[in-house]
Each structure stands twice: as structure tokens, then as C-alpha cells.
Design a protein around this nucleic acid. Sequence first.
DNA 1: TCAGGTAAAAGGTAGCACCTTTGATCGCTC
DNA 2: GAGCGATCAAAGGTGCTACCTTTTACCTGA
Lengths: 238, 238
Amino acid sequence: MVATVLHSGVVNALGADIVSGRIPVGTALTLEGIQERFDVSRTVAREGMRILEAMHLVTSERRHGIVVQPPESWHVFDRRVIRWRLDSEHRPAQLRSLTELRIGIEPFAAHLAAARATEDEKDALRQAAGEMRVFGEAGRLDRYLAADIAFHRTVLRASHNEMYVALIEPVIEAVSERPLHGHSHAYPVPAAMDLHEAVMLAIADGDGAAAEAAMLGILSDVRSGIGAALHADDVTAG
Amino acid sequence: MVATVLHSGVVNALGADIVSGRIPVGTALTLEGIQERFDVSRTVAREGMRILEAMHLVTSERRHGIVVQPPESWHVFDRRVIRWRLDSEHRPAQLRSLTELRIGIEPFAAHLAAARATEDEKDALRQAAGEMRVFGEAGRLDRYLAADIAFHRTVLRASHNEMYVALIEPVIEAVSERPLHGHSHAYPVPAAMDLHEAVMLAIADGDGAAAEAAMLGILSDVRSGIGAALHADDVTAG
DNA sequence: TCAGGTAAAAGGTAGCACCTTTGATCGCTC
DNA sequence: GAGCGATCAAAGGTGCTACCTTTTACCTGA
């Protein structure tokens, strides 16, 4: 928490506290309280609050103080909000949300990639799929996972849609954590390698429908893993 | 642009300028320049910059000033960034991105909704689907569109995934603009009403696969509308 | 070519005036 | 005496000014 700039220390600490629920919704902070807690000047406290306000974690009103907002209004795609939730006890809920998001967007991202991938991106996909095969068969799990991550990252980038691109980090987070999501069978399976190869070939071939279908195949076991949580009652964030 | 708080005026003006490209990437602003342009104090200028910095529209470095960042680093899901892009000459590109996002997320949102919708949400879907039928057959286009919007909004909300919920406004924006996306045939068609009804019934019935399939049907003509733009070269944001 | 000086610009501090909202107190009426 | 409106003080964010500190790009000169 060594802050090159002071306000980022304030933001990180308070943001994590709010997102984790340690500071409950509705709590009214004051600038003076923040100044004292972090031993900073009013300016620093105010700039920190502006940042949290931009994330919709708090609102600031005269006479009312700085009021912690409910999760519904948070900017849940903000990198820092995601990070804070992953670092809190809400990590499982955050990973579930991310995985569901991934299930939604990856198939059509593959479709778009088939239409828009550059030669460089196609090369990167070929290499990633190849490495998954090689390291998967060799039992090199770490390298296999790295190739897997590179593959999915490249597909999203190759969609050339800035919103899909913006979701790369969150999706990668979900990909990396896959084993935690009820995905019980041994991790590198031949079927997965085949499917990644199919996605790669379809994208290289410009066949959007095939790329989408193959990506759906990759996600099918993630979907069944999520299935158990589908009727979960505690799906509200916070 | 009447700003109850001064810094929001600064943020809105500069944000729109940056996002539209009127202030090119790499431009270095200074606090002093901002103070003069908007006739505000240093405090206000700094707080405004903190907000733009939180959106990753600018970075602020000593000696360099406040440097405008490239579109890749923007927080493209920030409501204000989307709004500014929609209000700029990049509106078509933004709508295309949003429509592609919608195509990705709505089917699985329907799937999730089938598992998680509350009774109230199911009621809202029934009502929206019913109104689409009634107003569609009566030729009341405005009411038909309103019901359509309510329907899609409710499906996303019923997914009970905060990330899908956070995408409601952007998706609605795309839904409202559908006619602009090469969607050429007359707007309220019986097939659309049938499909919305099918989604509603599947969700009410808890049948995720059916809900997803029906939603894919709703999106099929949006997808064909996008098809023309699939190989567009100017897909980079900014 | 490298060392050191210089200055630009953000980072940070301090403190004041002001505005809005809240809520308590006071006084008037019935 | 009870209720109701007016007034006033305090809280706390908003905004401004002034000034010092720190970083670092860039220039100068050996």
C-alpha cells in the first residue's frame, strides 16, 4: 500500500472496505474523518472521494457527508472494483459473475474474430492452440494454462470490439480459476485441445458460425459447472 | 451543462472533447490551462482531472502535464464514456459495439433469468410481451417499442448477475436504435412477438435452454444486420 | 558523453469564506 | 398548554487562494 500518490492509498483502502462490506452501505463518512484516518490534507481526501464517486461507490452531498452507495450502483466493470471483490470474501460470487459473463461473450467474440482477426492474431491463435496440445500431452500444467489464457485473450482481442477487449482481464481471471468452479475432471483433456484447435481453424478460415459453435463447446463444461449455482439464492452482490 | 458542482462541467466538456477526438490522443493538458479555459480554481481543475483519470481518459504525470490516453485504455463501460461517444460522430461505431455486446449477452442472460427470475419479474415479462402483441397489432409503434425495451430490461435484471444488470442501459440504447442497423423490414412483425412470448414462457417455466434459444431467435435479424459491418475496417474505437 | 543545474508542472498543505441542509429553539396563535 | 411556523446555529461539502515540495525533462558545459 505504498502510495506514490497519496490519494490512491485512500482510494484503495476505502474502496476495498466498501466493496468488501466492512464499511456498510449507507455509512456517512466525512472529509475530516478521512483526513484523520489517513493523516492527509483535505485536498487529498477530496480527490480520493472524487475517484470513489466516479466509481459510484459513494455520493457526496452537502451536510450529509460522503454516503456509501449500495452495490447496484457500483461500476462493476471497473478494474479496481473487480480486484477488490476478488480480494474480499466475495471472491466466489465475483468469479461466478465473471464466469457467467464469459459464457455470454466468448462465443460471439469468436464469431467476430473470424471476420476480423489480423494475420498476427491468427498466428498467435495457432501458436497458443499448438502449445496447449504439446504441453497438455506432456503434462506441463502451468504451460498449458498459460497457453489457454493466451488463446482466450487473443480471441477477445481479435473481436476488434472495444467492449469485448475491455473484458479481457476479467475473463482471464475466470479462465485461470476454472478448476474452482465445480470443474471436476482432470484439467487438460484431449477434447479441450481439439475444441481450441477447432476455434482456431474456424477463425483462420473466417468461418464465424463454426468458431462460435466450437467456442460453445469449450464453454459447455464451464456451463455445467455453473449449473449447480444457477438456483443459488445469494446471487445479490455485496 | 449547468453544473451544480463546477468540476462536473469540466469533466463533461473535456470528456466529450477527448472521446470525440476533438482533443487528440497524446495531447498534454495542464492544470493551469484548464483553470483558464473554464475559469475555475486549481482545486476544481484537479478534482476534474482525478475523475477523468479514474476513467482512464487521461494520466497525470509530473512535468508532463495531463496526457490524453488512447481509446484502448478508456473505461468503455462507464456510462459517461458511452454517452459521450453516442453524442459524438462516433455514434455509429458505438452503436455497433453495443449491438454486438447485446448479441453476446442477451441469450445467456435469458438462460440465467429462467433459473433466477422472481415472480414479479415474470409478471413484468408477461405484461411486456402482452403489450408488444397488443400495440404491435394495433400499429402503436411507440408503445410497442416501450414494451420491447421493458422486456429486454427485465430479462437482464432477472439474470441476477450484476454485470449483466450493469449492461442494461447500454443494451437498451442499442435496442432503441435497432432500425438504424440495417434492420430493414417493417418493425413490429408477428414473428418478433411470437419469439418474445416464447422467451417469456420459457423463463416463466424455468427452461433455460428454451429461453436462450428463443432469445437467439430474437437476435437473429440483428445479427444479419450486423453482418454487413462484420468486415468493416474502421472498427477501432476513437 | 555524462554530470549537474534549471525550471515546468503536478503533488501536497493550510486555511478561509460560502452555501445548503438539518434540526433545535423560540414565539405566536388558538 | 398544544401545535405550528419562523428563525438561527451548526455541520459539512464546495470553492478559492497562496504557497511549498517533489519529480524529471531538458539544457548546458566540461
